[in-house]
Design a protein around this nucleic acid. Structure first.
Length: 690
DNA sequence: ACTAATGTCCTTTTT
DNA sequence: GGACATTAGT
């Protein structure tokens, strides 16, 4: 029994992993369980062991639904539970091998699982199985079409931008509240537009259904509609003995409601999370979900994990102090299971340029000390702030990968190509159709409209495109080629059809973009990605739900096996850890974001965000605070900078846990003048005459 | 009907 | 310095 994988768990972890009981030979049963897992307390390990424990006790892996926050987390969790199961079997019975490549088949994000269920139950809810999934940009574009059709775009008073409209819509849907409530709570300055927005959203909803296109929110909303019917809910629910939800603190009302419909009594339901790490309020995540869990599920057990295996006590001291000043939460304090280290540093620098230099030097120095770049990370609140750092890293040849922010999937040429595939997959997807057709020289909105109408009338038969009238003579060949391509894509094998699309696209690429070459590289990558998917549809759906998140690709992309530094938003850093963490721009304006000022609820979320940032570090933590930074509002008047103020989270008790310092790249003379800023008079005066 | 060019506004975090 | 709206030109 020495190889028992559960022996590695501490008492609290083991209690969580094995909570419940078993009657005879039936599957493992359990009352609703809430696990409050502080940062670094082995949450993933515990959850993976729980899954493994279930599988070892009569629960079939395909009767487990595992809902995670990212796809990566789903994969990791599934793999680790499989390993645990395998290890346990080995310990007990020698050498038994069990399990398929994807051990927990039903593991994924809410959105991905939603998409899958909706494809399966499409008839029950009146959808085509071929429905498209819109990413954020697509959804905003579609909303914009309606916005223009209704004439709101030229109103004198400012009507919200398309992406703001989408935010308002999305928040309302996800929080399952009225438009009034959303406007009052989050967008008071747009409250005057209530009626117009309502009309806009109604048109948007109609249009989406007409085109059989679902945005991210629809994947949850329609899933919710599906399980609103008790019989369907029971049918879906009966496929699973256990439902486990990770990062429960970041679920929204809609997600919590879906879970409740699937598991009304809470039997076999396990949710894991940390209320101190709830950072998705802007996406309508509701901390109350986790705080009120015991009220919603009577008889629920609450277990806490408080032993932190990640960070030094000094880092935890700072983090704990920061959090102790928050308002409502499950009371807990993290205890370091590890030995001590150094106090975290708060370093002030002159400006952003100096910040970039300082970071580079620290990073290189740390590497000299034996910490690979891979174990270091720079975290930031706002991806704009990394520009200077990226330049500096480039100058010094420090490879890095940037997470969060953007952008591969948003690049115009990538969208062009994906639109072709999307259109082929769902001929009613007029958004994709418009994009594709307008690539052709001589085709604008009017002709594209005609083509879409024609297609609709002929039930999506692409051959009918040849009957569209009014194609300019010069455009005819391209038009015919496009029509031929679309027809051919219907039955072409995957991923070969992507190659066809790329061949077709090549001339358009060269014509439309000055620097076609780097873009070709992106398309090459797309082709590589395509190999990992079994069909066009799964490629399209999964890629929009889980776009490649790192965008070091565009410039000097480091290869997987190389050592590289990680740049990441704090949001994308959730669940990760590094030996050394630098937090950029730790001053008021970023931590907390200026946007949150004056709203206590938002400020609390900013505090939790700061907490997430701090608790990513294992051994070394550096907060950098530039004195002045640029405001890029109006570049007209030249460089505009603002003097940053100390973060309001750095109260005296917090400061007491930090080591404070100042850093400058340049030595200064007695008057504080930078010694590098000096005119060499003699040299200048002579230069003219020599 | 379409394209190119000029003018104006706004900036967070992401499935 | 980018996205988006409007305008003038082909």
């Amino acid at each position: 029994m020495s190889a028992d994988p559960f022996a590695k768990l501490n008492a609290a972890q083991r209690a969580a992993a094995t909570f419940g009981h078993r009657d005879g030979n039936g599957p493992w049963q359990s009352a609703p369980l809430l696990v409050i897992a502080g940062a670094g307390t082995g949450k993933t390990t515990t959850l993976a062991h729980r899954v493994a424990h279930l599988c070892l006790n009569g629960v079939s892996p395909d009767r487990i639904l595992l809902l995670t926050f990212t796809r990566l987390a789903a994969r990791e969790m599934s793999q680790r539970s499989q390993q645990t199961v395998a290890a346990a079997h080995k310990a007990q019975q020698g050498n038994e091998r069990i399990g398929a490549p994807s051990f927990i088949d039903w593991a994924g994000t809410f959105h991905a699982i939603g998409a899958r269920l909706l494809r399966h139950y499409h008839q029950a809810i009146g959808l085509e199985e071929s429905f498209s999934v819109l990413d954020r940009g697509d959804a905003a574009d579609m909303l914009d079409v309606e916005r223009q059709a209704l004439g709101y775009h030229k109103s004198r008073d400012r009507f919200p931008q398309k992406s703001t409209c989408l935010d308002i819509y999305s928040r309302t849907v996800n929080a399952q509240c009225s438009l009034e409530t959303t406007l009052a709570s989050s967008f008071p300055h747009f409250a005057q537009w209530h009626d117009e927005l309502k009309a806009l959203f109604a048109a948007y909803v109609d249009r989406k259904i007409q085109q059989q296109a679902l945005d991210y929110d629809d994947l949850l909303l329609y899933w919710y509609y599906l399980v609103e019917d008790q019989r369907i809910a029971a049918d879906i629910g009966s496929h699973f003995d256990h439902i486990l939800v990770d990062e429960y603190q970041d679920t929204n009302r809609l997600q919590a409601d879906i879970i409740r419909r699937l598991r009304p009594s809470g039997a076999g339901l396990t949710v894991v999370g940390d209320d101190a790490q709830s950072i998705y309020g802007f996406r309508a995540a509701d901390v109350e979900n986790i705080l009120d869990f015991p009220d919603h599920y009577p008889g629920a057990e609450v277990l806490k994990l408080e032993d932190n295996y990640r960070s030094t006590q000094e880092i935890l001291d700072t983090s704990n102090t920061l959090m102790s000043e928050a308002s409502r939460s499950y009371q807990k304090a993290l205890r370091a299971a590890r030995g001590g280290g150094h106090r975290p540093q708060l370093v002030t620098v002159e400006d952003e340029q100096e910040e970039a230099q300082y970071l580079c030097e620290q990073i290189l120095e740390r590497r000299e000390q034996g910490v690979r770049l891979w174990h270091q990370a720079v975290l930031f609140r706002n991806s704009r702030h990394t520009l200077r750092l990226e330049v500096e890293l480039g100058k010094r040849d420090i490879p890095y990968v940037k997470y969060g922010g953007l952008k591969f999937m948003e690049a115009a040429h990538v969208k062009d190509v994906l639109s072709v595939l999307n259109w082929a997959d769902n001929p009613r997807n007029a958004l994709a159709a418009f994009r594709v057709l307008q690539l052709l020289d001589g085709i604008g909105p009017a002709t594209a409209r005609k083509a879409c109408d024609q297609l609709e009338a002929q039930h999506g038969d692409f051959a009918s495109l040849s009957a569209v009238a009014g194609i300019p003579l010069g455009t005819r060949p391209a038009w015919t080629a496009t029509q031929a391509l679309m027809t051919a894509l219907r039955d072409a094998p995957w991923p070969g059809q992507l190659e066809q699309v790329l061949r077709w696209y090549q001339p358009h690429l060269e014509r439309r973009y000055d620097h076609a070459f780097p873009r070709e590289g992106d398309l090459e990558q797309l082709l590589q990605l395509a190999n990992d998917y079994s069909s066009r549809r799964s490629f399209l759906t999964e890629l929009t739900l889980d776009p490649p998140s790192a965008s070091g690709d565009l410039s000097g992309a480091p290869h997987i096996d190389e050592d590289y530094l990680v740049l990441s938003t704090v949001h994308s850093a959730k669940g990760q850890e590094w030996d050394t963490v630098y937090v950029q721009h730790f001053s008021d304006g970023s931590f907390p974001n200026e946007f949150a000022a004056g709203d206590d609820k938002k400020l609390e979320e900013e505090r939790r965000l700061a907490y997430v940032a701090l608790t990513r570090a294992k051994n070394k933590l550096v907060l950098v605070n530039p004195f002045k930074y640029f405001v890029v509002q109006q570049a007209k008047f030249g460089d505009r900078h603002v003097y940053g103020t100390k973060s309001r989270f750095l109260t005296d008790p917090v400061l007491a846990t930090l080591e404070q310092g100042h850093w400058s790249s340049q030595a200064r003379d007695a008057n504080g003048w930078r010694q590098d800023l000096r005119v060499d008079l003699k040299q200048r005066a002579r230069a003219m005459w020599s």
